[in-house]
């Protein structure tokens, strides 16, 4: 087995934040004597990621996702635990390390807004010292994949959010990094544009075997791209494993949809009725009772059609966080 692309062992980041109460008096007081609170943004998390893996990094706002990504890309110095990315210690910011990674932040731009994207691409080439033939090949390949042949000539200022995001992705990948840190790359985009970005990341991963660590609030991104997810909450690691395992573990219920042949029937004896109208019933059944209940319904009712579904992944994730918050 090759060396892991990313190894994180008991990584922590604590921030010291000044605290003060509201009001002028408190503000004046804090000018002279500041009180600090230590916030554990990331608290002893550990995981390894193999080369070529695409891992979804999930957690609510403020969970510590971005802090972790920043430590892995060398922007932040960990309070404890030294991560290993491609055999480098990120915070040392060696050029050989930085040449092999990239960082995309959906809410920030690294393009010059006055310049056409093509110029920003050229500057990126100069920064990374990519030889021209390689650069042109990669650039044109990406332009083709994202279908932006005309857009790259316009000043970035004049592009829509989605169009701009395509450019951000291109510019961030022109040096063909081996490790991608994508922080909310699809934030604010419409569904079609999200899908295009997603497909592009998928294609890049397939073609170049790159390792991807992705955060997103859109579960569609995660479901499409990541077999494996890491869930953190309040800086602590809650789950690391297959997406399907996460669903199994954290969703106690399944949803059964029944279409009735005669249009009527009583269903409250099987479980919680979520919805019943015009010959269609939706039930919420405890996971372990699903086979039994399904069999009973089929035996006792006149059924036209029956479906068993996992709840939407959003609901599962929400449940994970709600559960853990209650515990903490």
């Amino acid at each position: 087995m090759p060396n892991p692309a990313i190894t994180v062992n008991l990584l922590s980041k604590h921030y010291k934040v000044p605290v003060r109460e509201a009001g002028l008096k408190a503000a004046t007081k804090s000018l002279f004597r500041r009180k600090y609170n230590s916030v554990k943004a990331v608290d002893n998390i550990s995981f390894t990621i193999q080369p070529g893996e695409v891992v979804g990094f999930l957690g609510p706002n403020g969970a510590g996702k971005t802090t972790t990504l920043k430590m892995l890309s060398g922007l932040l110095f960990p309070t404890s635990g030294i991560p290993d990315v491609l055999g480098f210690q990120p915070s040392r910011r060696q050029a050989d390390f930085l040449r092999q990674i990239t960082l995309v932040m959906g809410n920030r731009s690294q393009m010059s807004w006055d310049l056409p994207a093509l110029d920003s691409f050229e500057l990126q080439r100069a920064i990374y010292g990519v030889p021209s033939p390689d650069f042109l090949r990669t650039r044109d390949e990406f332009i083709e994949l994202l279908d932006v042949k005309e857009l790259v000539k316009k000043p970035v200022r004049n592009l829509s959010l989605g169009e701009r995001m395509k450019m951000e992705i291109i510019v961030a990948l022109l040096h063909r990094p081996k490790v991608l840190f994508l922080d909310e790359p699809t934030i604010g985009l419409d569904v079609t544009m999200q899908r295009r970005i997603r497909q592009f990341v998928e294609e890049y991963n397939r073609r170049y075997g790159a390792t991807v660590l992705l955060t997103s609030h859109y579960m569609a991104d995660v479901e499409a791209l990541c077999k494996r997810v890491i869930v953190i909450h309040n800086g602590k690691l809650l789950f690391d494993g297959d997406l399907s395992t996460l669903v199994d573990r954290f969703s106690a219920f399944k949803t059964i949809g029944v279409t009735l042949a005669n249009g009527f029937g009583s269903f409250s004896q099987y479980g919680e009725v979520l919805n019943q109208e015009a010959g269609h019933v939706t039930l919420r059944i405890p996971r372990e009772k699903t086979p039994e209940v399904t069999a009973r319904i089929l035996a006792e009712q006149q059924v036209d059609d029956l479906t068993v579904e996992d709840p939407p992944i959003e609901d599962v994730i929400e449940k994970v966080f709600a559960q853990k918050s209650a515990e903490v």
């Binding site: 060398g74 050029a95 040449r99 960082l103 920064i127 010292g129």
Partner: peptide, 9 residues
């Protein structure tokens, strides 16, 4: 957005 400049080689 200085993050971008600081992650350049």
């Amino acid at each position: 957005s200085l993050d971008f400049a600081l992650t350049k080689p």
